Lab assay of single mutants.
Amino acid sequence: TEVDLHLGDITIKLKDVSEEIVKRAKELFKNGWSAEFVKKWIEEAVK
């Protein structure tokens, strides 16, 4: 499945990412993480 994760003005296309990771990524962004950091976190999380 593909998900578009909207973080501010940046959209990250996610492939084969669990709902849990998407939820967590949104929380991290809301908590002040930059979109770049969230993207890196996701990449690490799906390895």
Rank of each mutant, 00 (worst) to 15 (best):
E2T: 13
G8A: 04
E19Y: 10
G32K: 02
V22Q: 07
L5C: 04
I10N: 05
G8I: 03
G32D: 01
L14S: 01
T1D: 14
E44C: 09
I21C: 03
K39Q: 12
E2Y: 14
T1W: 15
G8K: 04
K15C: 10
E44R: 05
A35S: 09
E20S: 10
F29G: 01
E27N: 06
I10H: 09
R24S: 10
V38A: 01
V38N: 00
W33K: 14
K40F: 09
D4K: 08
L28K: 03
A25V: 04
A45C: 06
A25W: 02
K23H: 11
D9E: 10
K23V: 12
F29R: 01
T1Q: 14
R24Y: 11
E27I: 08
K26D: 05
T11K: 05
E20P: 05
V17E: 01
K15R: 12
K40M: 12
T11H: 09
E19F: 09
W41M: 03
E44G: 05
W33R: 08
V17K: 02
I21R: 00
V3G: 08
K47E: 10
K15P: 06
A45G: 03
A25S: 02
K47D: 08
D16Y: 08
V17S: 02
D4V: 15
L5R: 02
E43P: 01
N31L: 14
G32L: 03
L5Q: 02
S18D: 13
R24H: 14
E19M: 11
K47V: 13
T11F: 08
E2N: 10
I21M: 07
T1S: 13
N31Y: 08
A45P: 01
V17G: 02
S34C: 07
G8Y: 03
L14E: 02
D4F: 13
W33Q: 11
H6G: 04
G32M: 02
I12T: 02
K26I: 15
K40I: 12
E2L: 11
D9R: 05
W33Y: 13
E36C: 07
K40H: 11
I21A: 02
E27W: 11
D4P: 05
H6E: 14
L7H: 02
D4N: 13
R24C: 14
V22C: 01
K23T: 14
G32C: 04
A45N: 10
A35M: 06
V17Q: 02
L5A: 01
E2P: 08
L28T: 00
V46L: 14
E2C: 11
E43H: 07
F29D: 01
D4H: 15
L5K: 02
K30A: 15
E2V: 12
T1N: 15
E36V: 08
I21F: 06
L28I: 04
S34P: 11
K26W: 12
A45K: 08
V17W: 04
A45V: 12
W33P: 00
I21S: 01
L28S: 01
G8W: 04
S34F: 05
V38M: 02
D16H: 08
N31F: 09
E2Q: 09
F37M: 15
I10E: 13
W41Y: 11
A35H: 06
I10R: 03
W33E: 08
E44W: 10
E19W: 13
T1V: 13
E20W: 11
V38P: 00
K39T: 10
K40G: 09
I42G: 00
H6V: 15
E36K: 05
D16P: 02
I12S: 03
V17R: 01
E20I: 09
I42H: 00
W41C: 01
V46H: 07
K13F: 13
E36T: 08
V46S: 10
K26A: 10
V3S: 08
K26Y: 15
N31W: 10
V46D: 04
K40Q: 15
K23E: 15
H6K: 13
E36A: 11
I10W: 06
I10C: 13
K13Q: 08
F37V: 12
S18N: 11
L5I: 10
V22G: 03
W41V: 01
E27S: 05
E44Q: 07
S18P: 14
D9I: 07
I42S: 00
G32N: 03
E43G: 05
I12D: 05
K15M: 11
V17M: 04
I21P: 00
E44Y: 07
I12C: 05
L28M: 14
L5S: 02
V3C: 08
V46Y: 05
E36P: 05
H6Y: 09
S18E: 06
I10S: 06
E27V: 06
D9S: 09
K15E: 09
A35F: 08
H6I: 15
I12N: 03
K30D: 15
L7A: 02
K26H: 11
A25R: 00
K15N: 12
E43T: 08
L7K: 01
G8S: 03
A35N: 03
V46C: 12
E19I: 08
W41D: 00
D16R: 04
L14C: 09
K26V: 15
I21T: 05
E20A: 11
E19T: 10
T1A: 12
A25M: 03
V3I: 15
S34Q: 06
K15H: 15
E43R: 05
E2A: 11
G8E: 05
K30N: 14
L7Q: 01
H6F: 10
E27C: 09
E36G: 08
A25L: 04
I12A: 02
K40T: 14
K47M: 15
V38R: 00
R24D: 05
I12Q: 03
V3E: 12
S34R: 04
K39C: 09
R24P: 00
A35I: 13
W41K: 00
E43N: 07
G8R: 03
S18V: 05
E27L: 08
K30Y: 12
T1E: 14
D4T: 15
I21Q: 03
K30I: 10
V3Y: 14
T11P: 04
L14K: 01
K40L: 14
A35W: 08
G8M: 03
A35V: 13
T11G: 05
H6R: 11
F29M: 05
S34D: 10
F37E: 15
L7R: 01
K47A: 15
S18W: 05
K15I: 14
E43C: 07
L28V: 01
S18L: 06
L28Q: 02
E27T: 06
E2G: 09
E2K: 06
E43Y: 08
G32H: 03
E20T: 10
S34Y: 03
T1P: 11
E20V: 09
V3F: 14
S34W: 04
T1L: 12
I10Y: 10
W33C: 12
L14M: 04
I21N: 02
I21Y: 04
E27R: 05
I42P: 00
I10V: 14
K30Q: 15
T1R: 12
K13M: 13
D16S: 04
E20G: 07
I42Q: 00
D9Q: 07
K39S: 12
A25P: 00
E36S: 09
I42Y: 02
A25G: 04
V46G: 07
L14R: 01
K39I: 15
E19P: 13
E44A: 07
K15S: 11
L7N: 02
T11L: 12
K13N: 11
D9C: 12
D4E: 15
G32V: 01
V38H: 00
L28P: 00
L5T: 02
G8N: 04
V46A: 07
V46E: 04
S34T: 12
N31H: 11
V22T: 05
K30C: 04
E27K: 06
K47Y: 07
V3H: 10
A35L: 09
R24E: 11
G8T: 03
F37H: 15
F37C: 07
K40D: 13
V22S: 04
K40N: 13
E36M: 09
D4W: 11
D16C: 07
I21E: 01
K40P: 00
N31D: 14
R24I: 11
S18I: 06
E36Q: 11
G32P: 01
G32F: 03
I21K: 01
R24Q: 14
K26C: 07
I12L: 13
V17T: 04
I42F: 03
G8F: 04
D9N: 11
A25H: 00
E19V: 10
T11R: 03
N31M: 13
A35C: 05
F29Q: 01
E44T: 06
K47I: 13
F37P: 01
V22I: 15
V22Y: 06
I21L: 11
A45E: 14
K30V: 13
L7G: 02
K47F: 08
K30L: 14
K40W: 14
L28C: 03
E44I: 07
S18G: 09
K40S: 12
F37K: 14
V3A: 09
K47W: 04
V38S: 00
L28D: 00
E2S: 12
F29A: 03
K39L: 13
E19G: 08
K30W: 08
N31T: 10
V3Q: 10
K26M: 15
D4G: 05
K23Q: 13
E19Q: 09
L7F: 08
N31G: 11
R24L: 11
D9M: 12
V38E: 00
E2H: 11
A45H: 08
F37S: 15
W41G: 00
E27P: 00
N31Q: 13
L7S: 01
S34L: 06
E20C: 12
F37Q: 15
S18A: 12
K47T: 11
K39D: 03
V38D: 00
I12R: 00
G8H: 04
I12K: 01
V46I: 14
K23D: 14
L28F: 10
D4A: 14
T11N: 05
V22E: 03
K30P: 01
N31R: 09
T11C: 08
H6N: 09
N31C: 13
S18T: 08
F29L: 07
E20M: 07
V46P: 02
I12E: 04
K23W: 10
W41A: 01
K13H: 15
